[in-house]
Design a binder for these strands. Structure first.
Length: 417
RNA sequence: GUGGCUGUGGUGAAGCGGUUAACACGUGCGACUGUGACUCGCAUAUGCGAGGGUUCGAUACCCUCCAGCCACCCCA
């Protein structure tokens, strides 16, 4: 065991035992997103490094220290750390701005971030996400949040915390940044090294800092005054107020979190997270927001957009384990040809069934049947002679000898249950 | 990248200097030649993450490394 090749740090096999959980997430996603008019899009798992540097932003942790980057034929490529940039690239490249607006897309798949793994964090993890292009009105923000909430509800997750905030547009953001720099300047020397760096590059990120000294600075009255005072302009404020109005009307409970700034550079106006307190330290299930300038920044038409992504591993850890179901039937027989033919006929009728391929003793086969299936279809010497099948309910031990026709009629009734 | 905890079979685990490395589950075979789930027997780790050291002796003690988990940073 010690010299075998193992899965790499931060990666995991999803084994048959867990697969129904995953299929459930995917099936519900398809159902909920489709009925809301979202189409699935599948983009490559790696992209030009530059896409993420320009898209996600080179001041972000994701781009600075978490990318899986490699060189091939003098091109710098990166395993996607998130998928908004990739979807935007596909949107632009395929001229999707010509489609009727809004363009509503969803995706699912693996993402890669080079980090130390811990609870709720892996190097290869999976996200489902939704993006909507072309609508600047706050109805789009409401629609996209509603989609997330609906999906979570469909999964049975009703009591998660929705936090929202508005970052304003780039204009109001500059005002806010300047104000922050002014009020934080006297404290610059005592702040943590990270925040000292953030001070110039992106002072908003200081609001997120968890270091004790920085926290204390943030609690100071004069700093609080800056945080609490709304730096966002009239238009942005109106946009945000309308969003809140819609959420209220939809009865979606939310909290305003003024410290919510999000780690990606492309957001403006609305940002939100959905959190659970049953996840340990990594408690965000869903994160998203509006990114009105990203399409243009990546070379496309000026197109407003909103979206979010959810961590599928985190969703799974909030959900009850799904017990895997038994097969409908198990064919018990020592006559391989007849067994094989019956198995095929049953499967064609749409029921799941299996049989023993090693011609084990009758008792053993029945034992297998009771472990793996709800019904045993017994085909022995007598049955074959009389063209009948003995159908045994393995829960109740009730057994009936039926003609083939009767047995197949019975099969059809089984399908409904 | 930094810190804490842990590392015994397919799984859950006991053992804490000298054991045949317990027990349970799982799996396979048999008792039971066409009737399972109960029961009963048998088999299932030449090895206790890897390498080195201390010792007459190390799964146990020490060192190094590796891996896993959790936490920080940040996020899904």
């Amino acid at each position: 065991m010690s010299n075998i090749i193992k899965a790499q740090k931060g990666t995991k096999d999803i084994l048959p035992n867990d697969i129904e959980q995953w299929q459930n997430l995917e099936l519900k996603a398809l159902e909920i997103f489709t009925r809301a008019g979202f189409s699935e899009i599948r983009t490559p798992i790696f992209e030009a490094t530059e896409l993420f540097a320009r898209g996600v932003g080179d001041t972000t942790d994701i781009v600075n220290k978490e990318m899986y980057t490699f060189e091939k034929s003098e091109r710098s490529l990166t395993l996607r750390p998130e998928n908004t940039a990739g979807v935007v690239r596909a949107y632009i490249e395929n001229g999707m701005h010509r489609l009727a607006s809004p363009v509503k897309l969803w995706y699912k798949g693996p993402m890669f971030r080079y980090e130390r793994p811990q609870a709720g964090r892996q190097r290869q993890f999976h996200q489902v996400g939704a993006e909507m292009f072309g609508i600047k009105e706050p109805t789009a923000d409401a629609e996209i949040i509603l989609l997330a909430v609906d999906y979570l509800k469909a999964l049975g997750l009703n009591d998660l915390d929705v936090e929202i905030n508005s970052l304003g547009c780039s204009d109001c953001r500059e005002g806010f940044k300047t104000a922050l720099r002014v009020v934080l300047k006297p404290e610059l020397d005592i702040m943590c090294p990270d925040c000292q760096a953030r001070y110039e590059k992106n002072p908003l990120r200081i609001l997120d800092c968890k270091v004790e000294v920085c926290r204390r600075i943030l609690e100071k009255q004069e700093v609080q005054n800056v945080i609490v005072s709304d730096y966002i302009c009239g238009d942005c404020q109106k946009h945000f107020d309308e969003l809140k109005k819609y959420l209220d009307a939809l009865n979606i409970k939310y909290k305003r979190n003024k410290l919510l700034v999000r780690g990606l550079d492309y957001y403006n106006r609305t940002v939100f997270e959905i959190k659970s307190n049953n996840l340990g330290s990594q408690n965000a299930v869903c994160g998203g927001g509006r990114y009105d300038s990203l399409v243009k920044n990546l070379g496309g038409e000026d197109t407003p957009a909103v979206g979010w992504a959810m961590g599928m591993e985190r969703l799974n850890s909030l959900l009850e384990k799904i017990e895997s179901k038994k097969m409908n039937a198990y064919v018990v027989s020592n006559f391989s040809v007849e067994a094989l033919k019956l198995v095929e006929e049953l499967r064609n009728l749409g029921i799941s069934c299996d049989f023993d391929m090693t011609n084990k003793k009758f008792g053993k086969q029945l034992e297998k049947a009771s472990k793996n299936a709800d019904f045993a279809f017994i085909l022995g010497e007598d049955e074959i002679k009389n063209s009948t099948i003995s159908v045994k309910n393995l829960k109740t031990s009730e057994q009936k000898n039926l003609s083939k026709d009767e047995a197949f009629k019975f099969v059809k009734s089984m399908k409904k249950t």
